[in-house]
Nucleic acid binder design. Structure first.
Lengths: 339, 339
DNA sequence: CGTCAATTCGCAATCGATTGCCCAAAAGCG
DNA sequence: CGCTTTTGGGCAATCGATTGCGAATTGACG
């Protein structure tokens, strides 16, 4: 299988030493070899269809031109765009990305992390923002290069690329306030994610700012089922019902849709709902979802850029890049029916 | 970065030769070494936190324990489940998967393919079913191991794992016939995909079977925009309008939704729509989509199984696995209003 | 024409693990 | 007790590329 033509084959054909071939074929060292020789080597290589064995190269240079991307679950629609964003930056620069899914388990995360380290990946992009005992701390201690994406670094001095969560939530609350809503509920994501707390905090302060009553319900995971479960609980309470829901993300918001439907409530007529992320197809839901657009592809690309800066320029400054977000108003929010 | 403890360190601590360490740590060769020694080596390794350098191993064994997965676009929602399915089979067996996106370009496909070959991947899973000049033929000629997933092999004797497209379309047509529809349109996917023609053929024969009038409109890509464009064209025709649309996949069906909405037509009251794939969230669209469920995760897992069989057992039989599909009736189809 | 610096390129070590070959020690056997 | 067969494990080559070192060639310059 695969390539059988090696650097020595090229050397033989070009009538030079293998070392010379290596130098001739490498951009940074080709000035160490005569221009004519470079040309001879070049077309010897082309003639034979030579392509360097990156495993061998990796062994020698102890770099694999590969980066690991650790995310909770690829089937969560916000991740594919992020991954594509990462790829779009890395691929043209000769890097390959390996994506692994933890399914939210710290044990998986650790196992996958080790397996990638063993594969000599040159760095990591962490899309799992646990504040708990994730391997992020350990990775940093071990001197492994890394970047956080879509999650805060939680104390570890890795660079982080995030959307402007506070601003997004604030815009959502403002929008609802302008529509006349006075009693809001926020479905907060699991405590293990840094974003959950940021969003909840912003929700509370924004409600205060606009003089609204805001309460928070905690979810155990960012999933449709959990959103439905928690919304069911909210509706079961006897205290005064909210007229609008600010969900921690679009998945939770979708769960809210389901819950409302089960209870015979209409969205947005009875209750308005705002999501977060503007994941793909959220504009096609029933009803089309008002949500906060986060530039996922850009998040990915930017995180890749920061990682490469670490790898290639040994720049370990712990910058924090906050990308702007935008409230997309669609049909899941409307003016409150009566005061 | 990464691991600095090598096999020789372990050998030194255990008081044996590096070669012995290698044998002791390898399942298939550990019977060549005394049980006591194995134990000594084992905990020397544990004590030092040794973890083998898979690059070095790969160089020697010329296998990377990596498989390449080539798909058009990860943000197409049918692919994440397939990829997860592949992973679920490969990961426990020590393999890592590298996913690359061609964005439908043959040039990209070739470039990515070569780059993966150069990385010594042990095999490929092709999710790009071009019938044209994809690299699949060449890969086979070169003796590279591979499997087709979600696409037919198109003449190349690679194993293929597909959903039962014919049956799915037939079930859709039957469903519409039972609802009283008589004039159907099929939005056929691009000719370069083997599935497109299979589905179109099944559509036509099923219409004949049920005595319906069925016409076909060709799309240039499997995308929402293209579905909308083509449906616009269908609606612009002056001939008798269809009462139901069988879309080549869910993305096209979504485009049909958009087109209908633009034309002030209601789905399903004015026109019924059936999708294909049951991609994630298709039950949350407006209206919830009647579509054919394809077991994507299983497709992925099965293709991975077939690939490993080639890699590890040198079994190159070109089996073709057809997984059953199921029509999921939701709200985008209804009884025809009047005859 | 001799000396010194700059080019060019060959040599061989190296990255870390695997594995065929072979020798020594132990075990089996008559 | 001597001889054959196992068993255990050391030795060194190997995978394919990169790279520090130094030798040889060329050119510049006084």
């Amino acid at each position: 299988m695969s390539t059988r033509v090696t650097i020595s084959d090229v050397a033989k054909l070009a009538g030079v030493h293998p070392g010379t071939v290596s130098r001739a074929l490498n951009k940074k060292t080709e000035n160490q070899v005569n221009a004519g020789t470079v040309r001879r080597v070049r077309d010897a290589a082309k003639r034979l269809g030579y392509s360097p064995n990156s495993i061998a190269r990796g062994l020698r240079t102890s770099s694999s031109m590969t980066v690991g991307v650790i995310i909770p679950d690829l089937t969560n629609p916000i991740f594919p765009p992020i991954v594509r964003g990462i790829d779009s930056y890395l691929l043209p620069r000769g890097y390959t990305t390996v994506v692994v899914n933890t399914d939210g388990s710290d044990a998986n995360e650790r196992k996958l992390f080790e397996s990638l380290v063993q594969r000599q990946v040159d760095g990591f992009i962490f899309g799992t923002g646990h504040t708990g005992q994730s391997i992020v701390h350990e990775a940093y201690e071990r001197g492994i290069r890394g970047v956080m994406v879509n999650r805060d670094s939680g104390g570890v001095p890795y660079p982080a690329v995030v959307g402007d969560d506070s601003q997004g939530i604030r815009a959502s609350v403002e929008h609802l306030a302008q529509l006349g809503h006075r009693r809001l509920v926020h479905l907060e994501g699991p405590a293990s994610f840094s974003t959950s707390r940021v969003r909840a905090a912003s929700f509370l302060s924004s409600c205060a700012e606009y003089g609204l009553s805001g309460t928070v319900a905690l979810c155990d995971s960012y999933s449709v089922d959990e959103g439905q479960r928690v919304m069911d609980a909210v509706l079961a309470e006897h205290s005064s019902q909210p007229t609008a829901v600010v969900a921690g993300n679009d998945l939770l918001a979708l769960g809210v849709y389901h819950s409302l439907r089960m209870h015979g409530l209409r969205c947005p007529e009875d209750i308005s709902v705002v999501g977060f992320n503007d994941m793909p197809f959220s504009g096609d839901f029933q009803p089309p979802m008002t949500t906060v657009r986060v530039p996922q592809t850009e998040l990915g690309a930017e995180s890749a850029r920061l990682l490469l800066r670490q790898i290639e320029d040994a720049d370990r400054s712990a910058v924090r890049v906050v990308l702007p977000v935008e409230l997309i108003v669609r049909a899941s929010t409307t003016r409150v029916h009566q005061a």
